[in-house]
Design a protein around this nucleic acid. Structure first.
Lengths: 204, 204
DNA sequence: GTCTATAAAAAGATAGAC
DNA sequence: GTCTATCTTTTTATAGAC
């Protein structure tokens, strides 16, 4: 944390924290003001309304909903290695920002959430599908439904984090142990994907 | 809908609808009253407070977060067939009650959500793990981490529904097309699980 | 049990002094 | 830019007549 954090930055940091944990409906402007160590009036002075402040936070965080791997996907690598990279990157990302998945999912599921959906870097999904198709042409991978495949990878990476309290209860885990489980999960998922995409191919 | 739906039932039906879509924080007692076609005072007459009403709804719906397949798991079947059954049952369940996953996940992720977690039928997770271990002993399945496996199955079934707006956007789908995709997903996931657990040698 | 009216509290937003 | 004080609206909850 910087010593020279100005008011706007303090508000943004506080708002991020509160909106992430409580969501839009659960967030309170008073709590944001307290956390930023300023008064409510300042929130409106800088950002006019709760809506506007929320949008600022969403815009800043939405890029962390999907990992930035576009560059990596362009490299000359096998598809399975690209998937490896994606799994590592995605799980690492969410371990760092564990509140983002539920935050984003709630926002886009709200009645007025349609406008937020367009802000997501959805192109990643199509890009991975495209990479898969190219790999299929080369005979690198088995034939599966590309869209379902991408959904499955994202699901297996992201869902455990939104279900964290349940998983912690089921496995009787501490927060540290949960993170450890997610670290180990990377290798496990990479194994799964090999089974799904390449091993046993000769029998099909 | 029954003609002879009394006030309490009307309130519960309305509350369920509103809480499911909006969550606790987003739900408004006035909206529940409107939907139930009674006035707000009645809500408090029957349920005292918003908290109490919410808890009633949660208690009634939480059983639908996991499918009821305990009986099926006890049958003398291969593990892979039990997983098949679970995938079909789970996806069918969520297609019927699409709001439940996000509703439950939000509730257990809230600061005061700890008390709600214990109400989930978490034993299912351990039961499936146990079934897996038995199958492993018999040489029916490959060695994987049982806990990670169960998490993966649940993830692949449930996550697409909480990410529905994103998936619909990415695939340019209508609601009906999305449900169709989820129906097809059953078969795709069953294939995946065969690749993961028994390689290409699955004999049905 | 059901209603209208209203209290009580919470929460977003603004006015105006400095 | 920052603050205190206040307004307005929303929302939960209750009182009391019928």
């Amino acid at each position: 944390m910087e010593e020279t954090q100005n008011t706007e930055e303090k508000i943004l940091a506080a708002a991020e924290e509160v909106f992430m944990k409580a969501g839009y409906d659960g967030a309170r402007m008073q709590e944001i003001a307290n956390k930023a160590e300023i008064n409510k009036a300042m929130l409106h002075y800088y950002f006019r309304s709760k809506d506007k402040l929320f949008e600022k936070i969403f815009d800043g965080k939405v890029k962390h909903f999907f990992p930035e791997i576009s560059e990596e996907l362009d490299k000359n690598q096998t598809f399975i290695r690209k998937v490896d990279f994606m799994i590592d990157a995605y799980i690492s990302l969410i371990i760092r920002f564990p509140y983002i998945p539920l935050f984003v999912l709630n926002t886009v599921n709200k009645d007025n959430g349609a406008s937020f959906i367009t802000k997501l870097p959805i192109s990643l999904i199509k890009k991975i599908s495209g990479e898969y198709m190219a790999a299929l042409e080369k005979g690198e991978v088995r034939k599966v439904d590309p869209f379902q495949l991408v959904i499955s990878i994202l699901s297996m990476c992201a869902f455990p984090f939104v279900a964290r309290p349940i998983i912690m209860q089921a496995g009787n885990l501490t927060k540290a142990e949960f993170n450890q489980l997610m670290e180990e999960r990377k290798a496990e998922l990479k194994r799964y994907l090999r089974f799904i995409l390449v091993e046993g191919e000769s029998r099909i």
